[in-house]
Amino acid sequence: MHLEIITPDQKVFAGEVVSATFPGAKGSFQVLNNHAPLISLLEKGKITIRTTQGEQSIVVDGGMVEVLNNKIIVLAESVLA
């Protein structure tokens, strides 16, 4: 499944992932392959990305996520260091 994380300034991440966990407005949720279509607001928090090479985290300051046909697009307000 393909994941892209984009801010107004840059593309933060683009690549194939096994799973991703997001800080949803009503609690965290995980997306796996063949997930149902979804649009959700994101709160400030950590996105955990799992790939075949390992795991990494990106902290965002809110935004939204769309899941459709094994493609995930995150539009984040900003990425926090």
Score class of each variant (00 low, 15 high):
residue 71 K to R: 14
residue 10 Q to N: 13
residue 50 R to E: 15
residue 22 F to A: 06
residue 67 V to D: 00
residue 29 F to R: 05
residue 40 S to N: 08
residue 36 A to S: 12
residue 3 L to S: 09
residue 15 G to Q: 08
residue 68 L to K: 10
residue 45 G to W: 06
residue 26 K to W: 08
residue 21 T to I: 10
residue 81 A to L: 09
residue 11 K to A: 10
residue 64 M to S: 15
residue 62 G to V: 11
residue 10 Q to M: 11
residue 67 V to W: 02
residue 11 K to T: 13
residue 53 Q to F: 06
residue 15 G to I: 07
residue 77 E to W: 04
residue 59 V to F: 10
residue 33 N to A: 11
residue 45 G to A: 12
residue 24 G to P: 04
residue 41 L to T: 14
residue 60 V to I: 15
residue 52 T to M: 03
residue 75 L to Q: 14
residue 55 E to Q: 14
residue 33 N to M: 08
residue 28 S to P: 05
residue 70 N to H: 07
residue 52 T to Y: 00
residue 8 P to I: 10
residue 33 N to C: 02
residue 29 F to H: 03
residue 80 L to G: 01
residue 11 K to H: 08
residue 77 E to K: 15
residue 42 L to I: 04
residue 3 L to V: 11
residue 70 N to V: 02
residue 25 A to I: 14
residue 74 V to N: 04
residue 33 N to P: 00
residue 51 T to F: 06
residue 21 T to E: 12
residue 80 L to V: 13
residue 52 T to H: 01
residue 66 E to G: 00
residue 57 S to A: 14
residue 18 V to K: 12
residue 81 A to G: 05
residue 65 V to Y: 02
residue 71 K to L: 04
residue 17 V to P: 02
residue 40 S to Y: 00
residue 59 V to A: 13
residue 34 N to W: 02
residue 1 M to C: 06
residue 7 T to A: 12
residue 17 V to E: 03
residue 23 P to G: 04
residue 64 M to H: 08
residue 39 I to F: 07
residue 54 G to A: 06
residue 35 H to M: 05
residue 68 L to E: 03
residue 60 V to F: 07
residue 1 M to R: 09
residue 63 G to C: 10
residue 60 V to G: 05
residue 12 V to E: 15
residue 21 T to C: 07
residue 33 N to G: 00
residue 9 D to F: 06
residue 39 I to A: 06
residue 3 L to D: 07
residue 38 L to R: 04
residue 38 L to N: 05
residue 64 M to G: 09
residue 53 Q to N: 12
residue 21 T to R: 14
residue 14 A to Q: 13
residue 75 L to F: 13
residue 59 V to Y: 11
residue 35 H to R: 06
residue 50 R to S: 10
residue 30 Q to R: 15
residue 54 G to T: 02
residue 32 L to S: 11
residue 55 E to C: 04
residue 35 H to V: 00
residue 56 Q to G: 01
residue 39 I to R: 01
residue 69 N to G: 12
residue 35 H to N: 02
residue 21 T to G: 04
residue 15 G to M: 07
residue 21 T to M: 09
residue 3 L to Q: 09
residue 46 K to I: 11
residue 50 R to P: 00
residue 41 L to V: 14
residue 4 E to Q: 13
residue 58 I to L: 11
residue 62 G to K: 11
residue 38 L to E: 00
residue 15 G to L: 06
residue 44 K to G: 08
residue 19 S to M: 13
